[in-house]
Protein backbone atom coordinates (compact mmCIF):
# COMPACT_ATOMS: atom_id res chain seq x y z
CA UNK A 1 0.00 0.00 0.00
CA UNK A 2 1.52 3.28 -1.02
CA UNK A 3 1.37 6.23 1.32
CA UNK A 4 2.67 8.82 -1.11
CA UNK A 5 2.07 8.55 -4.81
CA UNK A 6 3.37 11.05 -7.35
CA UNK A 7 2.45 10.75 -11.03
CA UNK A 8 4.14 12.82 -13.76
CA UNK A 9 4.60 15.69 -11.38
CA UNK A 10 5.61 19.01 -12.93
CA UNK A 11 6.42 22.20 -11.10
CA UNK A 12 7.54 25.36 -12.83
CA UNK A 13 8.36 28.54 -10.92
CA UNK A 14 7.85 31.80 -12.77
CA UNK A 15 10.80 34.03 -11.98
CA UNK A 16 12.06 37.31 -13.37
CA UNK A 17 14.64 35.39 -15.38
CA UNK A 18 11.96 33.25 -17.01
CA UNK A 19 10.46 29.93 -15.94
CA UNK A 20 12.46 27.50 -13.77
CA UNK A 21 11.60 23.82 -14.06
CA UNK A 22 11.95 22.69 -10.48
CA UNK A 23 10.31 19.32 -11.14
CA UNK A 24 9.76 17.59 -14.45
CA UNK A 25 7.80 14.41 -14.95
CA UNK A 26 8.49 13.05 -11.48
CA UNK A 27 6.76 9.78 -10.61
CA UNK A 28 7.34 7.90 -7.37
CA UNK A 29 5.60 5.63 -4.89
CA UNK A 30 6.47 5.49 -1.25
CA UNK A 31 5.10 2.52 0.67
CA UNK A 32 4.01 2.43 4.27
CA UNK A 33 6.88 2.23 6.74
CA UNK A 34 9.54 3.01 4.16
CA UNK A 35 12.49 5.28 4.81
CA UNK A 36 13.10 7.10 1.53
CA UNK A 37 16.03 9.45 1.00
CA UNK A 38 16.20 12.05 -1.72
CA UNK A 39 19.71 12.91 -2.80
CA UNK A 40 21.08 15.16 -5.49
CA UNK A 41 23.00 18.35 -6.09
CA UNK A 42 21.44 21.68 -5.15
CA UNK A 43 18.77 22.78 -7.59
CA UNK A 44 17.66 19.22 -8.35
CA UNK A 45 14.23 19.81 -6.82
CA UNK A 46 14.52 17.44 -3.88
CA UNK A 47 13.35 20.03 -1.37
CA UNK A 48 10.66 21.21 -3.78
CA UNK A 49 9.45 17.62 -4.12
CA UNK A 50 9.26 17.29 -0.34
CA UNK A 51 7.42 20.60 -0.07
CA UNK A 52 4.99 19.40 -2.72
CA UNK A 53 4.21 16.34 -0.59
CA UNK A 54 3.57 18.75 2.29
CA UNK A 55 1.36 20.95 0.08
CA UNK A 56 3.68 23.88 0.76
CA UNK A 57 4.10 24.07 -3.03
CA UNK A 58 1.45 23.44 -5.67
CA UNK A 59 2.43 21.33 -8.66
CA UNK A 60 1.76 22.87 -12.06
CA UNK A 61 1.15 19.46 -13.63
CA UNK A 62 0.60 15.81 -12.73
CA UNK A 63 -0.86 14.58 -9.50
CA UNK A 64 0.23 13.72 -6.00
CA UNK A 65 -1.69 11.89 -3.32
CA UNK A 66 -0.78 11.51 0.33
CA UNK A 67 -2.63 8.85 2.33
CA UNK A 68 -4.95 8.45 -0.64
CA UNK A 69 -6.07 12.09 -0.69
CA UNK A 70 -4.74 15.25 -2.26
CA UNK A 71 -1.64 16.70 -0.64
CA UNK A 72 -3.58 19.71 0.60
CA UNK A 73 -6.31 17.59 2.16
CA UNK A 74 -3.59 15.54 3.81
CA UNK A 75 -2.07 18.75 5.17
CA UNK A 76 -5.41 19.86 6.53
CA UNK A 77 -5.77 16.41 8.11
CA UNK A 78 -2.36 16.86 9.71
CA UNK A 79 -1.09 13.72 8.04
CA UNK A 80 2.59 14.56 8.39
CA UNK A 81 5.17 16.16 10.61
CA UNK A 82 7.67 18.39 8.84
CA UNK A 83 11.25 19.00 9.98
CA UNK A 84 12.93 21.97 8.35
CA UNK A 85 16.55 22.55 7.51
CA UNK A 86 16.91 24.90 10.48
CA UNK A 87 15.40 23.95 13.81
CA UNK A 88 13.09 26.98 13.64
CA UNK A 89 12.10 26.81 17.29
CA UNK A 90 10.20 29.89 18.43
CA UNK A 91 12.70 31.76 20.62
CA UNK A 92 10.07 33.01 23.07
CA UNK A 93 8.93 29.49 23.88
CA UNK A 94 10.79 26.98 26.02
CA UNK A 95 11.62 23.61 24.43
CA UNK A 96 8.57 22.15 26.16
CA UNK A 97 6.33 24.93 24.88
CA UNK A 98 7.77 24.61 21.39
CA UNK A 99 6.81 20.95 21.34
CA UNK A 100 3.38 21.87 22.68
CA UNK A 101 2.85 24.34 19.84
CA UNK A 102 1.33 21.83 17.36
CA UNK A 103 -0.55 20.16 20.22
CA UNK A 104 -2.12 23.49 21.25
CA UNK A 105 -3.05 24.22 17.66
CA UNK A 106 -4.57 20.79 17.17
CA UNK A 107 -6.52 21.07 20.41
CA UNK A 108 -5.04 18.32 22.56
CA UNK A 109 -6.05 18.66 26.21
CA UNK A 110 -3.53 19.75 28.82
CA UNK A 111 -2.83 16.35 30.37
CA UNK A 112 -2.38 14.80 26.95
CA UNK A 113 -0.01 17.62 25.97
CA UNK A 114 2.11 17.03 29.07
CA UNK A 115 2.20 13.30 28.44
CA UNK A 116 3.23 13.66 24.82
CA UNK A 117 5.89 16.26 25.55
CA UNK A 118 7.40 13.89 28.11
CA UNK A 119 7.29 10.99 25.65
CA UNK A 120 8.88 12.75 22.69
CA UNK A 121 11.53 14.45 24.83
CA UNK A 122 12.52 10.98 25.96
CA UNK A 123 12.41 9.74 22.38
CA UNK A 124 14.94 12.33 21.22
CA UNK A 125 16.98 12.06 24.39
CA UNK A 126 16.26 15.55 25.71
CA UNK A 127 14.76 14.80 29.12
CA UNK A 128 15.50 17.59 31.56
CA UNK A 129 15.81 20.25 28.86
CA UNK A 130 12.10 21.02 28.57
CA UNK A 131 12.31 24.23 30.59
CA UNK A 132 15.26 25.62 28.63
CA UNK A 133 14.97 28.22 25.93
CA UNK A 134 16.20 27.31 22.44
CA UNK A 135 19.25 29.59 22.63
CA UNK A 136 20.42 27.71 25.70
CA UNK A 137 20.78 24.52 23.64
CA UNK A 138 23.41 23.48 21.10
CA UNK A 139 22.54 23.25 17.41
CA UNK A 140 22.23 19.48 17.55
CA UNK A 141 19.95 19.61 20.56
CA UNK A 142 17.80 22.26 18.91
CA UNK A 143 17.41 20.07 15.85
CA UNK A 144 16.44 17.13 18.06
CA UNK A 145 13.86 19.36 19.73
CA UNK A 146 12.45 20.27 16.34
CA UNK A 147 12.19 16.55 15.49
CA UNK A 148 10.41 16.01 18.80
CA UNK A 149 8.02 18.81 17.83
CA UNK A 150 7.29 17.04 14.52
CA UNK A 151 6.75 13.75 16.32
CA UNK A 152 4.56 15.11 19.10
CA UNK A 153 1.24 14.83 17.30
CA UNK A 154 2.13 11.37 16.06
CA UNK A 155 1.48 11.73 12.33
CA UNK A 156 2.22 8.61 10.31
CA UNK A 157 4.45 10.46 7.88
CA UNK A 158 7.61 12.38 8.71
CA UNK A 159 8.99 14.74 6.07
CA UNK A 160 12.55 15.86 6.80
CA UNK A 161 14.37 18.50 4.77
CA UNK A 162 18.12 18.19 5.36
CA UNK A 163 17.54 18.24 9.10
CA UNK A 164 21.19 17.54 9.93
CA UNK A 165 22.73 19.61 7.13
CA UNK A 166 24.09 22.30 9.41
CA UNK A 167 25.55 19.95 12.03
CA UNK A 168 29.07 18.62 12.37
CA UNK A 169 29.96 15.05 11.38
CA UNK A 170 30.01 13.56 14.89
CA UNK A 171 26.70 15.01 15.98
CA UNK A 172 25.26 14.01 12.64
CA UNK A 173 26.36 10.37 13.03
CA UNK A 174 24.83 10.26 16.46
CA UNK A 175 21.53 11.75 15.29
CA UNK A 176 21.43 9.40 12.28
CA UNK A 177 21.73 6.45 14.61
CA UNK A 178 19.01 7.82 16.87
CA UNK A 179 16.75 8.55 13.94
CA UNK A 180 17.03 4.96 12.70
CA UNK A 181 16.17 3.60 16.14
CA UNK A 182 13.25 5.96 16.34
CA UNK A 183 12.01 4.88 12.92
CA UNK A 184 12.31 1.21 13.88
CA UNK A 185 10.31 1.86 17.05
CA UNK A 186 7.56 3.98 15.54
CA UNK A 187 7.15 2.41 12.06
CA UNK A 188 6.56 5.80 10.49
CA UNK A 189 6.98 6.50 6.82
CA UNK A 190 9.90 8.90 6.42
CA UNK A 191 10.89 11.02 3.44
CA UNK A 192 14.34 12.46 4.03
CA UNK A 193 16.18 15.02 1.91
CA UNK A 194 19.98 15.05 2.13
CA UNK A 195 23.06 15.72 0.09
CA UNK A 196 25.26 13.29 1.95
CA UNK A 197 25.73 9.88 0.31
CA UNK A 198 26.70 8.00 3.51
CA UNK A 199 23.72 9.49 5.32
CA UNK A 200 21.33 8.46 2.57
CA UNK A 201 22.66 4.92 2.34
CA UNK A 202 22.87 4.47 6.09
CA UNK A 203 19.32 5.54 6.77
CA UNK A 204 17.22 4.44 3.83
CA UNK A 205 15.30 1.50 2.52
CA UNK A 206 15.01 3.37 -0.75
CA UNK A 207 17.27 6.04 -2.20
CA UNK A 208 15.95 8.40 -4.84
CA UNK A 209 18.72 10.05 -6.85
CA UNK A 210 17.73 13.30 -8.50
CA UNK A 211 19.40 15.56 -11.03
CA UNK A 212 18.96 19.23 -11.84
CA UNK A 213 17.77 21.44 -14.71
CA UNK A 214 15.08 20.26 -14.97
CA UNK A 215 14.67 18.53 -11.59
CA UNK A 216 13.93 14.90 -12.21
CA UNK A 217 14.48 11.43 -10.78
CA UNK A 218 17.50 9.73 -12.38
CA UNK A 219 17.65 6.54 -10.30
CA UNK A 220 15.74 4.73 -7.55
CA UNK A 221 17.85 2.34 -5.51
CA UNK A 222 16.28 -0.26 -3.20
CA UNK A 223 18.61 -0.94 -0.31
CA UNK A 224 18.92 -4.52 0.94
CA UNK A 225 20.89 -3.61 4.03
CA UNK A 226 19.52 -5.22 7.21
CA UNK A 227 17.13 -3.21 9.36
CA UNK A 228 19.52 -3.41 12.27
CA UNK A 229 22.31 -0.99 11.31
CA UNK A 230 25.19 -0.18 13.62
CA UNK A 231 27.32 2.77 12.53
CA UNK A 232 30.18 0.55 11.37
CA UNK A 233 27.92 -1.02 8.74
CA UNK A 234 29.26 1.83 6.63
CA UNK A 235 32.53 -0.06 6.20
CA UNK A 236 30.94 -3.25 4.82
CA UNK A 237 31.18 -4.12 1.10
CA UNK A 238 27.35 -4.15 0.76
CA UNK A 239 27.14 -0.59 2.06
CA UNK A 240 29.97 0.59 -0.18
CA UNK A 241 28.35 -1.02 -3.19
CA UNK A 242 25.12 0.87 -2.69
CA UNK A 243 27.04 4.07 -2.01
CA UNK A 244 28.90 3.49 -5.26
CA UNK A 245 25.67 3.12 -7.18
CA UNK A 246 24.36 6.34 -5.69
CA UNK A 247 27.56 8.13 -6.66
CA UNK A 248 27.31 6.81 -10.20
CA UNK A 249 23.71 7.95 -10.42
CA UNK A 250 24.66 11.39 -9.19
CA UNK A 251 27.52 11.65 -11.67
CA UNK A 252 25.39 10.46 -14.60
CA UNK A 253 22.66 12.97 -13.85
CA UNK A 254 25.05 15.80 -13.24
CA UNK A 255 25.61 17.61 -16.50
CA UNK A 256 28.87 19.41 -15.86
CA UNK A 257 29.86 21.63 -18.69
CA UNK A 258 33.45 20.40 -18.89
Amino acid sequence: MSVIQAKNLDLTFQTNDGPVHALKDVSLEIGKGEFVSFIGPSGCGKTTFLRTMAALENPTGGSITVNGMSADEARRNRAYGYVFQAAGLYPWRTIEKNIKLPLEIMGFDRAEQERRVRDVLQLVDLEGFGKKYPWQLSGGMQQRASIARALAFDADILLMDEPFGALDEIVRDHLNEQLLKLWARTTKTIAFVTHSIPEAVYLSTKIVVMSPRPGRISDVIESDLPTERPLDIRDTPEFLEIAHRVRDGLRAGHAYDD
Partner: peptide, 23 residues
Protein backbone atom coordinates in the same frame (compact mmCIF):
# COMPACT_ATOMS: atom_id res chain seq x y z
CA UNK B 1 9.94 28.87 7.54
CA UNK B 2 8.17 29.97 10.71
CA UNK B 3 5.00 30.57 8.69
CA UNK B 4 5.43 27.32 6.74
CA UNK B 5 5.59 25.47 10.04
CA UNK B 6 2.18 26.90 10.97
CA UNK B 7 0.89 25.81 7.56
CA UNK B 8 2.02 22.25 8.12
CA UNK B 9 -0.05 22.27 11.32
CA UNK B 10 -2.96 23.61 9.31
CA UNK B 11 -3.20 26.44 11.84
CA UNK B 12 -5.99 29.01 11.55
CA UNK B 13 -5.27 32.68 10.89
CA UNK B 14 -6.08 33.51 14.51
CA UNK B 15 -3.68 30.85 15.75
CA UNK B 16 -0.90 32.17 13.50
CA UNK B 17 -1.58 35.63 14.92
CA UNK B 18 -1.63 34.76 18.61
CA UNK B 19 1.08 32.11 18.59
CA UNK B 20 3.51 33.52 16.04
CA UNK B 21 2.96 37.05 14.77
CA UNK B 22 2.09 38.75 18.06
CA UNK B 23 4.92 37.32 20.18
Amino acid sequence: MELDLMRTYSASGAQVFWKLRLP
